[in-house]
């Protein structure tokens, strides 16, 4: 007789884990499928645009959902609502992306050159060429994240602070500087096209 059989429900998956409220998943599988359908595209867009690597975005997106479902104290889908779950998901993804950037080098993420994270995918590169890519590629990774969260996802400063882990008071200044810089780059880009 193995020890597993003497301890009931250890390997029973859902049944055993639902016993412990700390380990209970934030939602059931059907609710998760619906939540995934509604949130995955915007999460992928955020990751793909800020990392410049669609494959990496895919990997981090999947890992974010898995971690979200494995959280010890996840936001409740019913009590906190989808917005809170979505925000938490973006927070996990942001941390994973930051970890990825930090991993291969010992230097701080702030010291890395912007062009290190330039787009590598051909399709995304061509799309970015038309829309935002060249300007975004010249921004620092953290600024890309802030700009995307503020202007593409429409998050408030408080929400961005929650997602990125930065102080709420500093978001305004960082965002202001990043917006000014990218606006300058976009204007130059537009002038170059017109000329």
């Amino acid at each position: 007789m193995f020890w597993e059989s003497s301890i009931p429900n250890v390997l029973a998956g859902d049944a055993s884990l639902e016993v412990s409220p700390a380990a209970a998943p934030p939602m059931d599988d059907e609710a998760f499928a619906a939540f995934y359908e509604r949130s995955a595209r915007s999460l992928w867009a955020y990751l793909a645009r800020t990392s410049g690597d669609p494959t990496l975005a895919e990997d981090i997106m999947q890992e974010s959902y898995v971690r979200f479902l494995c959280l010890a104290n996840p936001p409740s889908y019913l009590a906190d609502g989808e917005v809170a779950c979505r925000r938490y998901l973006f927070r996990i993804a942001t941390n994973l992306l930051r970890d990825h950037w930090r991993r291969p080098r010992s230097a701080s993420i702030e010291e890395m050159p912007e062009n290190l994270f330039a787009c590598v995918d051909e399709q995304v590169a061509s799309d970015s060429q038309m829309i935002l890519g060249p300007a975004l590629a010249q921004m620092r990774p953290r600024d890309r994240q802030l700009l995307w969260l503020a202007h593409a996802e429409g998050y408030s400063h408080h929400e961005i602070a929650e997602i990125t882990g930065l102080a709420s008071a500093s978001i305004r200044l960082l965002l202001f500087r990043a917006r000014r810089k990218i606006a300058y780059l976009l204007q130059n880009q537009n002038r170059g096209r017109q000329a």
């Binding site: 992928w44 867009a45 645009r49 202007h151 204007q187």
Partner: peptide, 19 residues
């Protein structure tokens, strides 16, 4: 300028996502 560019980029990227 910035918000419009990001909104366009978001719409494009959301459409290109393969889930």
């Amino acid at each position: 300028l910035v918000t419009a560019a990001f909104q366009r980029a978001r719409n494009h990227a959301v459409g290109a996502a393969k889930l």
